[in-house]
């Protein structure tokens, strides 16, 4: 059997990405269906992530699948010393597909190699989080009408933020111009700048974060600067408030520009911005539902045609 698991979207072709976005679009039009009637989806969260889990479970439930799983690794046998392989083999007896979040890097790749049923990676340590990337892409596509030739400003923690790294890699097909806005301690790692050069992705680095820096942005992708990332807390105190987005900074922004944030937010986006038309982070999270419906269906072998010709839509 062909391995339909989703471990990373870094390897996806442009066609495959556009295909999945088309599918997500259909699920946004009609979210409630019985398309997965009779299927069982397992959600195995070896590390808690309420947001991601709820989104996946809602995606499965709204397509008529049943959901089993665990939300807290403390209650599972892995605390008794069971290997990941054994857990996966056991659960694959019960479920048609496994959505897995794990604290170890590479866990999803390994699970996909030993599992007889498809695995969807819902985050493996600092490594990959493809469903987040997919919903980011869908949000960009939906708000800009295209993924091509966009100016994308990434702000905050560009060193450890896996969402910005995955987004950067997934956008390589679409001729973007990236703007990296970060303090020295958290700047984009060389390996990703090298990736940009190899893949002919334009990028500009900025230290300042002002109305002028973001004036040409189509997408402003904010991330949280996390205190625990700093070895020198003096440095943290110096930079923590430099990368906060204030309402006044949006005066020169393009009308169609949208602000994204993987959430949770702390203080990096002023609350007054929530009511501004540029704010899009809550809709972005909502888009995760449609993106994940598409990813689950694709992993189960359903095609865009199946979705287009679906007669199980609940009006």
């Amino acid at each position: 059997m062909e391995n339909r698991s989703l471990v990373t979207i870094a390897d996806h072709s442009k066609e495959k990405i556009m295909y999945l976005l088309r599918m997500a679009e259909e699920f946004e039009k009609h979210t409630n269906r019985k398309l997965l009637d009779g299927k069982v989806v397992a959600t195995l969260f070896f590390e808690p992530s309420t947001r991601t889990r709820l989104s996946f479970e809602t995606a499965a439930n709204r397509l008529g699948a049943r959901v089993i799983g665990f939300t807290d690794p403390k209650v599972t046998s892995s605390t008794k010393g069971e290997t990941l392989k054994d857990t996966i083999m056991m659960v694959s007896n019960y479920a048609d597909i496994i959505v897995m979040r794990h604290y170890l890097e590479g866990a999803a790749r390994y699970a996909s190699e030993v599992s007889p049923v498809p695995i969807i990676n819902a985050g493996d340590g600092a490594n990959q989080h493809p469903s987040q990337t997919m919903l980011d892409l869908y949000s960009i596509y939906k708000t800009q009408g295209t993924l091509e030739n966009l100016h994308i400003h990434l702000v905050g923690d560009l060193k450890y933020g896996r969402t910005v790294h995955s987004l950067l890699m997934a956008m390589r097909h679409f001729n973007p111009t990236f703007h990296f806005i970060a303090p020295d301690e958290l700047k984009m790692p060389d390996v990703y700048k090298e990736y940009c050069r190899k893949n002919h992705i334009n990028y500009v680095e900025h230290k300042d974060f002002t109305a002028d820096t973001i004036a040409d942005a189509d997408i402003l992708y904010m991330t949280r600067v996390q205190k625990e990332r700093f070895t020198d807390l003096m440095e943290y105190e110096k930079v923590k408030d430099l990368y906060l987005l204030k309402l006044s900074m949006l005066e020169k922004a393009k009308e169609k520009m949208r602000i994204l944030h993987p959430l949770p937010r702390v203080n990096e986006i002023e609350y007054a911005i929530d009511d501004d038309p540029h704010a899009y982070y809550f809709e972005q999270a909502h888009n995760g539902l449609f993106a994940r419906q598409a990813l689950i269906c694709d992993a189960l072998g359903l095609t865009l045609d199946d979705v287009l010709n679906d007669r199980t839509i609940i009006e």
């Binding site: 290997t83 794990h102 170890l104 890097e105 590479g106 866990a107 390994y110 493996d124 060389d190 090298e194």
Partner: peptide
């Protein structure tokens, strides 16, 4: 070399690709 890699926490074979770095 990554202590958080699955290969250092699960009884399994490691697997490496030979690549040119930056």
């Amino acid at each position: 070399a990554n202590p958080k890699c699955i290969t250092n926490n699960e009884p399994m074979k490691t697997d490496f690709h030979v690549v040119d770095n930056e």
